Simulated scan of single mutants.
Amino acid sequence: MIIIPWIIWFIFRDRKSSARIFAAGLLLMVLSEVLDIVGVGLGKWVYPVKVIPIATVSFSFRLSLLPVFAMLLIQIKPNLNPFIKAIIFGVFGAYIGLPLLSVIDLYKKIDWSLHYSFIILTIMYLLSHWFSRRKSFHAVD
């Protein structure tokens, strides 16, 4: 779950825009990491299994699957309405990804609704899409 998405992105990335798209993916990684720390800290969900002592299993979901999926959505059909892509991203992340992690006992909701995850993931995609479209990506003089 950590390596394969990045290999897929490396193969299918738009080489002319890869830095810009990667920057949008990094924004999504940072946002998801911060929000995950807040959610775990508030007791909204837990990760029952730790693969390594310092990182939870959700590490691969937050720092690999989500950003790569968003980066691929940003570059595929670039003129498609970003709200449609954001809804697709939110649906896959909240209603497919998180339940799959629950089924294999890697994620456990305590006081949380998947609808909240859908809204947050949808907004996160829209922010990363907006960031990828900024015209401030110029060479440093």
Rank of each mutant, 00 (worst) to 15 (best):
Lys77Val: 11
Val30His: 02
Ser132Arg: 02
Trp112Ile: 13
Phe118Leu: 10
Val140Asn: 13
Phe89Arg: 08
Ser128Met: 06
Val40Ala: 10
Ile11Cys: 11
Leu35Pro: 08
Gly90Leu: 00
Arg133Met: 07
Trp9Thr: 04
Ile52Asn: 10
Phe10Leu: 15
Ser60Phe: 03
Ile7Glu: 05
His138Glu: 15
Phe12Cys: 02
Thr56Glu: 03
Asp111Lys: 15
Leu126Glu: 03
Phe59Gln: 04
Ile74Phe: 01
Phe92Leu: 13
Leu98Phe: 03
Phe22Ala: 07
Val38Gly: 03
Lys108Cys: 04
Leu26Cys: 07
Val49Arg: 09
Leu66Phe: 04
Ser17His: 13
Phe12Ile: 00
Ser102Glu: 09
Phe22Asp: 08
Leu66His: 01
Ala86Met: 00
Pro48His: 06
Ser113Ala: 08
Ser58Pro: 12
Ser60Gly: 14
Met71Gln: 04
Leu42Arg: 08
Leu28Tyr: 03
Ser18Gly: 05
Arg134Thr: 12
Glu33Arg: 13
Asp111Tyr: 15
Ser132Ile: 02
Leu114Val: 08
Ser102His: 06
Met29Cys: 15
Thr122Asp: 06
Tyr116Gln: 10
Arg134Asn: 13
Ser132Gly: 06
Pro82Leu: 07
Arg13Asp: 05
Tyr95Arg: 05
Val40Asn: 10
Gly90Ile: 05
Tyr47His: 03
Lys109Thr: 00
Leu28Met: 13
Val46Tyr: 01
Trp112Lys: 10
Ile74Tyr: 02
Gly93Val: 10
Pro78Ser: 07
His129Ser: 10
Phe12Lys: 03
Leu63Glu: 05
Leu35Tyr: 14
Ile88Glu: 00
Gln75Ser: 01
Ala23Ile: 07
Ala94Leu: 06
Leu121Asp: 09
Ile84Gly: 09
Ile3Tyr: 15
Ser17Glu: 13
Ala24Cys: 03
Leu65Trp: 08
Gly25Met: 12
